[in-house]
Amino acid sequence: MEGEYLIIERLVRNISHEIKNPLTAIKGYAQLLGLKPGDPELVEKTRKMVVENADLIDERLHALYAVFELTPGEKADIDIAGTVGEFVRSLDDDIMARVSHINPPGGVNAVLERRGILRALHLLVGRFDWKGNGGASLTISLRETEEGKPGLDFEFFGVSFEGMKGETFFLPYSEKKLYRGGTELFEVFATARMNGWRFGLLDGGARRGFYLVF
């Protein structure tokens, strides 16, 4: 119960932080109008800022509950390594140069939802803040668990995972240094949950990266 309480507390803090920012802009411009009355440019700007920031609040709330509206897709026999390779090759050249993937000989197949894997790859790799983490690189490797289930390890190099904890790292807006949107890891978590996958930090946080077990 204590652990769950901490998760909820963290979630509430994260969300309130993301809502407070646009609220600050709305309140601030309303007060600015009072400080500089009769300025038509300011009136127009205030109108624009209030609308934009109200929309931003709406967007952020929508992004949160949208994950609960995900529906599972069809399952098929998937060549996991091949799917990863295809995804990596679709990346922009500058990002592709920083991502490597290691495949075991013979490949690994499993019956999985292809759309879910691609969504997870897009969120973890495509939506990573490569520009802001200029020294970062990533190795994606296939793993085989003790239960014989296939999985993927996403190990990052040249970035800090300091402060990321197993119980809360995936919460919305917990991690903005690596993922600008703030909800990427939460969406992966929701996707994994919907498909019955496991999603967590590599070696409990001892290594910098994530795992997905299918």
């Binding site: 600050t24 802009a25 601030g28 931003l56």
Partner: peptide, 14 residues
């Protein structure tokens, strides 16, 4: 220094 455009605009105008 703020990652929110609305905050940056507000403080600049203020």
């Amino acid at each position: 220094a703020d990652d929110e455009a609305g905050i940056r605009d507000l403080l600049r105008d203020l």
